[in-house]
């Protein structure tokens, strides 16, 4: 994740949600930043005012906010959209993607791409979240296959998976692999954890 100033994305109101609309999965805007309602509990003392206890995840920072609202309150909706994109190329600190439907191009800084650069191969399909039409989060597929470009040779006959070593893959990233992996092998990596999953081909 990266941080953005509250005003960077502007305040583009696209409507409001009343407490009666509150539910898990709602995308709302607080102080100009987009949040996902990840939990919503309706509590109400029999004769008292209804309270809506929410957990809200900041889509820019990943932090979680506890907020309680009372009946009649409202929240601004956030213009958040998820699109399928293709990774085109990198130009210094800028990564360029293309919307698969509209062919519109989006640029993300290396800060925004964060650790995902490790898995990006040209032409790869990813999903991207837009807030007020600006890209905010890039998600590569959960699993990607990467070719090993360089590694120290493994000890002969060592097939144990608990002996590991770092290898350099085609994107330039280092991945920790079992020692039997050799140069030219293709490995599968879980992009959510950054961990080696299996050898795909030798």
């Amino acid at each position: 994740m990266f941080s953005a100033s509250a005003t960077k994305w502007g305040k583009q109101s696209v409507g409001t949600y009343k407490t009666s609309d509150f539910r898990k999965g709602l995308k709302v805007q607080i102080d100009g930043e987009p949040y996902l309602m990840i939990e919503m509990n309706f509590v109400k003392p029999g004769k008292g005012n209804a309270l809506y206890k929410c957990k809200l995840k900041n889509l820019l920072r990943g932090t979680v906010l506890d907020r309680t609202y009372k009946g009649g309150d409202s929240l601004e909706s956030a213009d958040v959209e998820e699109i399928d994109v293709q990774y085109l190329y990198r130009q210094q600190d800028t990564f360029v993607f293309m919307d698969n439907k509209t062919y519109e191009q989006y640029e993300l800084s290396s800060d925004q791409v964060d650790d995902s650069w490790k898995y990006l191969k040209e032409g790869m399909g990813c999903s991207m979240m837009l807030f007020n039409d600006n890209p905010i989060i890039l998600s590569p597929p959960n699993h990607v296959e990467l070719k090993v470009e360089y590694c120290e040779p493994g000890a002969k006959g060592d097939t144990a998976t608990n002996v590991t070593k770092p290898v350099k893959v085609e994107t330039g990233a280092e991945i920790i692999c079992p020692s039997f992996i050799n140069m030219g092998n293709v490995i599968k990596v879980d992009t959510r954890t950054g961990q080696y999953v299996e050898r795909v081909s030798t």
Binding site: V43, P45, G48, N49, L51, K53, D66, R67, T68, Y69, K70, G72, D73
Partner: peptide, 26 residues
């Protein structure tokens, strides 16, 4: 340290009592 609705008016005594009852006593 409980989450308080921004819209709860200071003078709404019963509103505050309800909030404390729900969060801290029930």
């Amino acid at each position: 340290g409980i989450a308080v609705p921004d819209s709860l008016p200071m003078e709404d005594r019963d509103g505050w009592l309800d909030l404390l009852l729900v969060e801290c006593i029930e």
